[in-house]
Amino acid sequence: MRLALAAGMTLAASASPALAQYAGGVSGSIEVATDERRRGLSWSEGDPVLRGSVSVPVSEGLSLDGTAVSLWGSDRHGGADAVIDLGPSYVRQLGGWRLSAEARYHLFPGASDQGYGEIGGGAGFLLGPASVDLFASYAPRQSAIGGDNLYLSASAMAGVPGTPFTVSARVGRSSGDVRDASRAARLRPEGAYWDYGFGVDYLQGRWSAGLRYADSGIEGPGSRHAGPSLIGRLALNL
């Protein structure tokens, strides 16, 4: 697990010697959380996780990002001990609008034939301490996920005036074509579904903490580790 975390951060941070001129902008974080839940599904099967992230600027608006998260033998991902997310991100601010695009490849150390890639893009609008974001992610047809996968989401975030607290809410929908039902169940158990949640975060200096409620519309046998959950996190921003 230590090797997986180190690999994710090292690969992103050492993508090219040419990045040295932007080294002053390198940022990262270390976080512990009570669950790794993505799009309403627990990837760590409800177990606590350790997360490490790094972002390396390449040019204005463009960065290379890496994140590694412990999964402790996740059944959802073929017994993987971790997930490592690697890829570029681009963000541009146009007045009050924020446009973004990204590509990610998800590696799963400890498991075979589980990796898959996806691309995404979104638009957000800033209004004082608040923001509203729309985002879409698409994973083209791949054998590891039994077809393709489209995820659409909307989120809102606002700082509480005069306090270090931020509140947020989000809703998303997963859909796509199924070629292999057993593999497609990794990301979409029982087919298309909605997920939603809301949270509160506290930021003080380089430390942050948060609580998030997450749930999904998945019912039946596929609802294992997809029901309501309260997730806590504590992070150090480097």
Rank of each mutant, 00 (worst) to 15 (best):
S70N: 03
L71S: 03
S100P: 00
G87L: 07
L86I: 13
S100H: 15
A80N: 04
H106N: 15
A80C: 12
S89N: 13
G78D: 12
P88R: 08
L94S: 12
S74W: 02
A80R: 06
T67Y: 00
G78C: 02
H106D: 15
I84A: 11
G79F: 07
S63K: 03
A68W: 02
G95T: 01
A82Q: 06
R76K: 14
L99V: 11
V69F: 01
S89L: 10
G95K: 00
V69Y: 00
L94G: 06
G66V: 02
S89C: 10
G87I: 06
E102M: 10
A103Y: 05
V83W: 03
Y90R: 03
A80E: 06
R76Q: 06
Y90I: 05
P109Y: 05
A82D: 07
A68E: 05
H77N: 10
D81R: 04
H77E: 11
D75T: 11
H106V: 07
L99H: 01
S100Y: 04
V83I: 15
G73D: 12
G78W: 04
G95W: 00
L71M: 04
G79R: 07
A80F: 06
L64F: 14
R92K: 13
W97G: 08
T67C: 04
W72S: 13
S63M: 00
W97N: 13
S89Y: 07
D85E: 15
G87Y: 00
Y90W: 15
D85A: 13
Y105F: 07
R76M: 06
E102R: 14
P88E: 01
D81L: 03
S89E: 11
L71I: 04
G79A: 04
Q93Y: 08
A82N: 08
R92N: 12
G78V: 02
T67A: 09
G95Y: 00
G78Q: 12
V91E: 15
S63A: 13
P88N: 09
S74M: 10
R76Y: 09
V83L: 05
E102T: 09
W72T: 09
R76F: 05
A101V: 07
L107W: 13
E102F: 08
G73C: 07
L107A: 15
P109F: 12
F108V: 06
R76A: 11
I84Q: 10
Y90V: 09
S89I: 05
A103T: 07
H77F: 15
D81E: 15
R92M: 15
A103C: 05
I84W: 02
L86P: 04
H106P: 03
G96I: 01
A103R: 04
V69T: 15
L64W: 12
L107K: 06
F108W: 08
